[in-house]
């Protein structure tokens, strides 16, 4: 086993870049994806019919096809189509539209929106209607009822599943190495090529991922413990129990 490349400052810097790119992609697509999920869940519950159909359609397609295929579809499929639009190369958006990070974020946001939207929809429907009526009786407007009552109660009901989705998202990030984004796996692949190594760099980032997953699990557990009303739920089961959430189909 040869780990001498670890002392090379150039590789150290690349690995830091890879780690930061991985984490930025995780946080950005989690935040955007959750926002989209709220929108998609509400569109299916209360939205006008065409919007509800659109949300269901997106949800079925994003959950029924491999994430890798989606990445290729957006990066190569849509990306090449955009290239063909006259004048787009000269426009100010071209810098963004050429960047794999843009397509990775777009794909992951849609994917998180679809999976989490499905979870959130179930949770929103499980909040007893009487609680919303109570909010109305206290003089809250429909928007206030949603932000102060309905959504927080729904999140309370599905928080363990939501945090499980975050872990699954972290584990999806290496896929972006296939569209030439500099994540940890891509850095490992470069180190492998340049040093004629087969598996040492892979083992190293495997260990990084193990640590990242455990750290994220611990952080999310703190979130669960501090979220009002979820304490009892989160206490049951060891802290590794979050890993045991297979993705709901």
């Amino acid at each position: 086993m040869d780990f001498s490349w670890l002392s090379d400052p150039y590789y150290q810097e690349s690995l830091w870049t890879g780690l930061i790119n991985t984490l930025v992609l995780l946080v950005v697509s989690a935040v955007l994806g959750f926002t989209l999920a709220v929108g998609m869940a509400m569109a299916r519950i209360k939205g006008p019919r065409p919007l509800a159909w659109l949300a269901s359609g997106v949800s079925i397609v994003m959950r029924g096809t491999p994430l890798l295929v989606q990445l290729f579809f957006f990066y190569y499929g849509i990306g090449r189509l955009l290239e063909g639009i006259p004048g787009i190369r000269e426009s100010m958006f071209w810098g963004i539209l050429r960047d794999p990070f843009f397509y990775a974020t777009l794909t992951f946001t849609l994917s998180v929106g679809a999976y989490t939207g499905e979870v959130l929809r179930g949770a929103l429907l499980s909040v007893p209607p009487g609680e919303r009526e109570a909010g109305r009786a206290f003089g809250m407007g429909p928007f206030q009822v949603f932000t102060r009552l309905w959504l927080p109660r729904a999140i309370q009901l599905c928080l363990p599943t939501l945090t499980g989705e975050m872990i699954l998202l972290l584990k999806s990030v290496p896929l972006v190495s296939t569209i030439a984004m500099m994540d940890l796996l891509q850095v490992a692949n470069i180190i492998r090529d340049e040093n004629f190594l087969t598996y040492e760099p892979l083992l190293f980032i495997g260990a990084i991922y193990l640590v990242l997953t455990i750290l994220l699990t611990l952080c999310l557990r703190q979130v669960e413990l501090n979220f009002p009303g979820v304490r009892a739920q989160a206490r049951s089961g060891g802290w590794l129990s979050r890993l045991r959430q297979p993705r709901p189909a």
Binding site: Y199, L202, Y209
Partner: peptide
């Protein structure tokens, strides 16, 4: 079960493919 579930599938597949035959 813990280690396999904590590491990304793609990474495991590449690792086992190259490491496995060695």
């Amino acid at each position: 079960s813990t280690a396999v579930r904590a590491v990304p599938e793609l990474l495991l597949i590449i690792l086992l493919y190259y490491g496995g035959s060695q």
